[in-house]
Structures are given as C-alpha cells and as structure tokens.
Design a protein around this nucleic acid. Sequence first.
DNA 1: AAGTCGTGCTTGCATTTTGCAATTCCACAC
DNA 2: GTGTGGAATTGCAAAATGCAAGCACGACTT
Lengths: 137, 137
Amino acid sequence: MKKRPSTVCPIVYALDIWGDPWSLVILRDVLIHNKRHYREFLASRERISTNILSARLQSLVEAGLLIKLEGDTNRAQTMYRPTQKALDLFPVVFAIMHWGLKYNPNTDMTIPIMQELTTNEKALELRLLENFDDVTS
Amino acid sequence: MKKRPSTVCPIVYALDIWGDPWSLVILRDVLIHNKRHYREFLASRERISTNILSARLQSLVEAGLLIKLEGDTNRAQTMYRPTQKALDLFPVVFAIMHWGLKYNPNTDMTIPIMQELTTNEKALELRLLENFDDVTS
DNA sequence: AAGTCGTGCTTGCATTTTGCAATTCCACAC
DNA sequence: GTGTGGAATTGCAAAATGCAAGCACGACTT
C-alpha cells in the first residue's frame, strides 16, 4: 500500500488507512463477526495469506483502529480488539453492505446479519456494539 | 487489482469493484465534484497517473458504475458519467466522509461540501443528485 | 493541406506490493 | 527436553503501481 502525504480530504484519509483490498475484510470480521484471533482471520472465506494478514493487523494497530492484547489465559494467544475509531466505522460498513446487498446477486442471505440489516439496522448495530463493552467501558 | 472469485459477501463484492486506493477517489470526483473529463480527474490533488486513471475508468465502466460518452460539441472530449449504481454510493461516500471528518485533523473545512455535510446531509445529497438529472431521467 | 494544439490513452521500465509455501520464533504442556 | 499450536517472517515468482515519454486523432489555424 502506497502512502500519500497527509491529506486534506476525509475520503483520502480514510482510504489511506483501510482503502486496500484486505483491511476492510479484517474489520468486517472484527466488527460483524466478532473475531479476535489471528487464526480466526485466517479462516475467513477470502483466504488471506499470513504475511498480508500480519502486515494489515500491524498497520491497523498503528492507525489506531485495533489494539493488540495478550490473551487472557494463554499469553501467546494474541487478541485484537477494535478501538472507538474502528467502532465508528459501523455506519460505513453498513452502508457498504446495503450497496453490496443491492447489486451482488450472489449475496448469501442466510448469513444471519443480512436479514436484520434490511429490517432493523439500528437494533443490529446496538446489539453488535455489546460485543465491545470491554473496549468502550 | 486482484480479482477474487464471485463472492457471497456484499462487502467483498463492493471491495472487488472499488476497493483499491484509486477508484473511490475517481468516484468522489464524479459524485461530489461533478467532474466528468479525463483531464479533470488528472488535475486532482492526489496526482493519479495517466495509466492508472485509464485502467480505473475502464474497470469502473466494466463494473457498470460509469458510462463513457462522446463529448457533445467536441467528439474527442470523452465524458464519464455515473450510473444509478454509482449514485447509490452516496450513502457510502457520506459515511466515509463523516468518519474521515471526525478523525482527520487536516481536513480542509473550507471545501464547500464539508460544512453542509455535518449540518444538512440530506439536502446536500439531493442537491448533488440534481447534477445527474441527465443520467437518471 | 499542413501545422499544431488539446484530449484521451498506451508503452516501457524501475519500484513496490501481492500471493503462496516454507520456515522460524516462542509460550506453554507434558 | 520434546512436542504442540499460534503468530509472524522469509524467499521468490507474479502482479500492480509510479513515472516519463510518446502515440492517435479530432478540431482549429492559416
């Protein structure tokens, strides 16, 4: 990922942080699917490779979207959790999902979230946010 | 840009279309700044290079987000205009702008749109949509 | 009709990033 | 110590990017 000099445009600012093809996939897994471990991210359908995953996790930590924690029981089991800055991406992620939902004929509507997204987005957001009480408190 | 096989996830679907670091910059210029000519896109602060611009315009046309038209007076003056599929990205673009606005300390608030985005987003969207009456009618 | 200007786009090439498999590092368990 | 599994690095081929130069072509000038 190229780095542009500090920008005056909010969109370019956002793109410079998560505007590559992988960061948003990771953020989706964190925000929507409540994943937190390296192995969980690796297991996603999109088959991210280990070096890219590692690099993206690092850059998201640097950008202040994720924090890296030692596992509770096992100290080797690193845990990645979102910051408020990442949680504020919910509206973005939802907007993208709405758009994808409208135009991707292959969308899997059996994914639990999908139904609720169209019928009750606000409740969905609030429910998902509960996953991060540990972070926001 | 890599191509992933057809996906079941609306987010990945969206990323495969405009999830590279440049496509959204072009779409921003089309949707927000009402640009339509090659030279206008080249003139953006972000200094996209000619080959990338050309490739991205093509892929956005292929993806059905833009249409390519001959200029009205000058046949050599190609014109790129958004389709409905691109206009439906307004909520996404706005959501990203809100986020960038919150976290990018360098945001240039003198850009006309910025003030209105925070105070009256819906009116802003409607006003911008008027730029595309030719396309939607 | 010949020059030249503006506009959109392609080419060539060095640099960077990706994809993928193999390997290493390290905490913990036994 | 040996083994196990999670996290990350390395090596290398393939692809994408950045950049400068040049090409095609319609329109305008004379």
